[in-house]
Design a protein around this nucleic acid. Structure first.
Lengths: 228, 228
DNA sequence: TGCCGATATGACCATATGGTCAACTCTGTT
DNA sequence: AACAGAGTTGACCATATGGTCATATCGGCA
């Protein structure tokens, strides 16, 4: 057990990790039903039996992946109060969500596939924790609107707008790459997109970011590189 | 053949229609691989053999559905020029896209599932027609920005923003219903969301809708009905 | 050396899969 | 009544599915 097969990891930890990554890819693109244990095993470079040995069953594997993704999501959620600065909070949310999308595109797609199915495994989470989180944020946004710190927009639709806009770059990556004629979205693309979203959404809600000192000249790029 | 089984439709047309609707639902929630002909047949209330008799194969059925959805999409795309009013055009796009999402949620989800897979069947469409459409729009948006009619935002990211925000209400319907604690999104929800998106996006880009005469008091609802 | 639990995997099973086919019914035409 | 073609369907097939299990190997330790 104290050998040195791989940096710092025991056999179990290493294999489980390989399997989780492979499974995330396969589940993300084909959904729960469309993913086969065989396909996951091949993606992980292991025999099917070995995969089942580590994860127990397809269902357990899927649930483990969803839980991992929800944990990442929860780690991102910080608390806010009505005395916080609206611009900072909104911009922070956009940037956090965008970072999550960027760092875990497969996980984001897995989540999307799960919700597309009707969220059979996530009902509880959505209707419990997440719903409360949204409602608490909504209350704060309303207070801000009452104080005239932002336009009186429906806070729930605002949260979903941010959600969709950021989620999109993982879920519809294939479409975006095809249309912009690129092989992958790079760090600079993500920065530009994030800045763009902060600009439009904050301005669109009548909020001014405290860090947005000199309104003009942001958002450089103009589409994408003329094909060449 | 000239019987009167059903209003105006021959047997073939009627059954094909039933099958297409059923298949759209099943493919939308489970993706191509996850959908089984058996499940589609059950959803259509027909024996599996009969489904295959009409559609030929699972693959052909899937392709037919994608083509139908792309046709609906194309029907929505009108042309624009740099002399058009930015506010009208953007608002028109948002409203059209929202109407498409509302009228064909299953088709929208089908499209999402296809793109999640990496768009294996739609590469050609995305990289051809749709890409050209986006580029032509982008050029017009850039001219508008040069003329000072809107902020100099990246037009491609703007198009994707609208895309994602509207698409979201079909693809993540399960999440939205769960969080807002509703059974379905009604006509009034869709109206409110559409108005909200027009407000935030047009304002966020520094565009003023020509129909937006009296800036204040829009967007009524405040979250959703307090559970009861 | 022999032992032991963790790891590894091929053989196997019941069921589900997409698709074919032959046989059948139904309806309109002659 | 006879025919033709569309519509209908159960039986069937080769393959793939999720999962089990018996067996084999490994690494450390006495």
């Amino acid at each position: 057990m104290t050998s040195m097969n791989s940096p710092e990891l025991g056999t179990r930890a290493r294999n489980e990790s390989v399997i989780l990554e492979a499974a995330e890819r396969v589940f993300a693109s084909h959904g729960y039903r469309g993913a086969s244990v065989q396909a996951i095993a091949e993606a992980a470079g292991l025999p099917k039996s070995n995969v089942l040995y580590y994860v127990g069953s397809k269902r357990k594997l899927y649930v483990a992946l969803l839980e991992r993704m929800m944990a990442r999501w929860n780690a991102m959620l910080d608390d806010i109060g009505e005395d916080d600065d609206p611009g900072e909070v909104l911009e922070g949310f956009i940037r956090s969500k965008m970072r999550l999308t960027r760092q875990h595109p497969q996980g984001s797609r897995l989540f999307a596939a799960e919700v597309l199915q009707g969220a059979p495994f996530l009902q509880e989470y959505l209707h419990g924790e997440l719903r409360e989180w949204v409602r608490s944020r909504a209350r704060v946004f309303e207070r801000w609107a009452e104080k005239g710190l932002m336009d009186p927009v429906d806070p729930v639709w605002l949260i979903f707008l941010i959600w969709s806009a950021t989620q999109h770059y993982a879920d519809f990556e294939a479409q975006i790459l095809s249309i912009t004629d690129q092989g992958a979205l790079g760090e600079s693309d993500y920065r530009a997109i994030t800045d763009f979203l902060c600009h439009v959404i904050l301005k669109g809600c009548g909020v001014r970011s405290t860090s947005d000192v000199n309104s003009e000249r942001h958002y450089p790029s103009i589409q994408g590189k003329e094909t060449t």
